[in-house]
Computed example of a mutant assay.
Amino acid sequence: MISALVYREGEITQYETDALDAARDASGTTWVRATDEGDFAAVADAFGIHPLSLEDVRNDVRPKTEEYDEYTFVLVRTAMLRKGDQNFEEEVGTRPVGFCFGDDWVVTLTRRDIPAVNSVWGAVERKDPRILRFGPDFTASRVIDRIVDNYFELLDEVGDEIETIEEGIFESPDKDVLQDLNAVRRDLLSFRKTVWPTREAVSVLARGDPDYVRESTEKYYRDVYDHLVELVDLTETYRDLARGARDMYLNTLSQSTNEVMKTLTVVATIILPLTLVVGIYGMNFDPGASAYNMPELGWEFGYPATMVGMAAVTGILLVYFRREGWL
């Protein structure tokens, strides 16, 4: 689980796991990659890495940059949407990547294979060994830049999800839409907890504060820092969009409720006068006791006239409500 590359005079030499001392002592620029916690101790002994650096990678602390006497330590995190992967504890899955680089060596510490690290490693091994020629600090900057580029892909996915949710709000504002929206908001909050401290860590490198970051490499870290600033702005923008989509959902739901209430009000208003008529003629007055006790009950056309009157009231109300735009 340990691999080593040494660049010297335009050529790359690969060392086996049991040749760490030879890789460390070889002339040129050395890159050691450890992808298992069990190998951290061997790498630390070979290159004098402080146990606190190993502990930070194991515990997955927030991204940061620290200066030691023999090397500079940088911790960043990869980020990807969880999508049902139970290995991730948060909405956005993160994995730590530790960098230790000195005068002529760089060590990457991960708990498993990381695509961004493997991508740059493959480029050095097969295509462009000159990456190591520019020094260990430059090599670390290329890996960090690749990790940050993947952040943009994550935000693109989140942006697509927000667009899909907005379309769903207009089509069918049901509970599933609200659940998806809440999931996106959690994704953005979780990603924000990664990108903000990463920006702070890279800003230290961009200023050239650590002793092992050369002036010629600062501009590359400044470029990565600019990308992180853009990512922070995009994250806040997407959070605003998600917040706006939530307000849109609530407004659409409220409007739908108002339409239902308006329909029920129209129905109740139409039934009210009919109920009044039925209630009046439901009173038990005896027409034979007095000439004033509902004399129309003895009228030959009393029942048809009542029904026609009730139908006329219903028709008048329907015409009125249609003119007012309630129907």
Results as ranks from 00 to 15, higher is better:
M1F: 07
L5C: 09
V6Y: 07
V6D: 01
R8I: 00
E11P: 05
E11F: 07
E16K: 13
D21P: 04
A22K: 15
A26E: 08
A26H: 14
G28W: 12
T29R: 05
W31F: 12
G38F: 01
D39G: 05
A44L: 07
A44S: 15
D45T: 08
L52N: 13
S53D: 12
V57Y: 00
N59H: 06
D60H: 04
V61D: 01
T65V: 11
Y68C: 08
Y68F: 15
T72V: 02
R77S: 03
A79E: 11
M80P: 00
L81I: 13
L81G: 04
G84Q: 07
D103I: 08
W105I: 09
T108R: 03
R112F: 03
R112S: 13
N118Y: 01
A123V: 10
D128T: 15
I131L: 15
R133T: 09
R133A: 13
F134T: 07
G135Y: 13
P136R: 05
S141Y: 12
R146S: 12
V148A: 02
N150H: 15
E153N: 07
V177R: 15
D180L: 04
L181W: 05
R185D: 11
R185K: 15
S190T: 11
S190L: 02
R192Y: 08
V195E: 10
W196Y: 15
W196L: 11
R199G: 10
E200P: 11
E200N: 13
A201K: 06
V204T: 15
D211G: 02
D211E: 04
Y212F: 14
V224A: 04
L228T: 03
L228W: 14
V229C: 12
D233W: 13
E236T: 11
T237E: 00
D240H: 10
A245I: 04
A245F: 03
D247H: 01
Y249L: 09
N251T: 10
K262Q: 06
A268Q: 08
A268T: 14
T269D: 03
I270Y: 01
L272K: 02
P273N: 03
L276E: 03
G279F: 01
M283V: 12
A289D: 01
A289R: 00
G302E: 01
A312H: 06
L317P: 10
L318V: 13
L318Q: 04
R322T: 14
